[in-house]
Design a protein around this nucleic acid. Structure first.
Lengths: 239, 239
DNA sequence: TAAGAACACCTGTCATACAGGTTAGGGGCA
DNA sequence: TGCCCCTAACCTGTATGACAGGTGTTCTTA
């Protein structure tokens, strides 16, 4: 029934890849934005002249990357920017030992020194308040590592959000998953309770600098924070 | 209260999501590395007690993110770290106008100031040589924008590689696709031929600093390079 | 012993079927 | 007239079976 033209297709990478390209192409051509509906699977099946299987696999692939949202009963829609795929790539890199925790620390330090500075320049009052609140919560719950961790992660995500550059948010959030799996190592690497409190105070310093609108101080506080974390890790022999 | 859009809802998220988790879980549990083979689709079908349809969609999703490689006739294997998914996310963000070109410039500037410094510290002689060669090629072909662009992109990718931190490579490469679609705007934003040559000279400066093993100079040259690019963009009214 | 043929296994794609969610419109009721 | 419910059309999620063609292994044969 179906003609398989020997080659000459959109590359011979398989029908599914072609379908994926067709869909992303459609988004671009129709200038679709988040929330806009895509053609139904049946539609695509007819347009591309392939089976629904192929179209479904294409949709599913894009959905896994969170480029589109799939809903039962409703057609798929263009998705809002989401970390989904990025964090999976990072986690994959770490679990397959192609990326080390130190390397992630370096990247985070680089990026978060910048988000701290930008946040100091651009934060809203509400964002400044949430940052301070997160730091305060860390201190108040400092005997419950799991709680501290969640506030810690949320603190850094909020800082990225306050930078008002979604790409920074994307990247910082992509690391959250891995952080959640390694955070406790860093916590334990701090020998004393004072060392742990010092780390929490580091967050308060950053929050204060952001509140004060002082990018230089925010950057420095962030650098200090990462340097101390890395130092603790190394002293604890995690290499 | 909290929107839990990400993962973690293993239960009702559909069989495919479950299958995806089962596969990544398998990789982690068996401690698989790049090149190692995964169970066949038939295997997975039996293990998870779902149809092959579901298993295939799961494999396909992971393949689209380049976490695994699928080959006809052979079982799927764990993939080497690849930018695939990340660049699709970035491109999606740009085409759906959730990310602006300026925002990408800021992120790139932040990251590449660091890759330049690291490259200066860690580059091999071969890497230094290739950087210099790329810069030279840009100058020699300066009347052919398309050629200049490819060397430009390759230059920045090589710099990331020379930083010897794969995460930087991942991120920088993720931007290459978008860069390829917007580069010419930047090129044209440079009013005169001298301004274009000045941009090329910026690359030579960076390469020289990396060759000399001078991280401070490399960082400064990179910052200057991005500042000039952004300035040209703004003066050309692209905002 | 080495080339080659046969076979088992695997992926790529198609067709079909059905359960259950979603939506819009039409008809009935107040 | 206006509102509400109910149904029919459409859509996705999953299952099953089929077949073509690629890959690797084993067994046969020269």
């Amino acid at each position: 029934m179906r003609n398989h033209p020997p080659s000459e297709d959109t590359g011979n990478a398989g029908l599914v890849s072609t379908a994926i390209q067709a869909i992303t192409q459609h988004i671009r051509a129709e200038n679709l934005g988040p929330g806009d509906l895509l053609p139904s699977e049946g539609d695509m099946t007819r347009r591309l002249n392939v089976s629904r299987t192929v179209v479904r696999e294409a949709f599913r692939a894009l959905s896994a990357m969170r480029l589109i949202d799939m809903n039962v009963g409703r057609r798929a829609s263009v998705a809002k920017l989401d970390t989904g795929a990025m964090s999976m790539v990072i986690e994959h890199g770490v679990t397959t030992e192609q990326i080390s925790v130190q390397q992630i620390y370096d990247v985070r330090r680089t990026i978060e020194m910048r988000t701290a500075a930008l946040a100091a320049l651009r934060r809203t009052d509400a964002e400044a308040a949430e940052l301070e609140d997160r730091a305060r919560q860390m201190r108040e719950n400092h005997r419950m590592p799991a709680v501290v961790m969640e506030h810690d992660i949320a603190f850094h995500e909020m800082l990225a959000k306050a930078s008002h550059n979604p790409v920074f948010s994307l990247i910082v959030n992509a690391f959250s998953g891995v952080t959640r799996r390694t955070w406790v190592i860093g916590w334990r690497s701090r020998a004393s309770e004072e060392a742990q409190m010092e780390m929490i105070d580091g967050h308060m310093d950053i929050a204060a600098a952001v509140r004060a609108g002082d990018p230089r101080s925010a950057t420095e506080s962030m650098a200090k924070h990462f340097d101390k974390s890395l130092k603790a890790l190394i002293e604890a022999g995690i290499a």
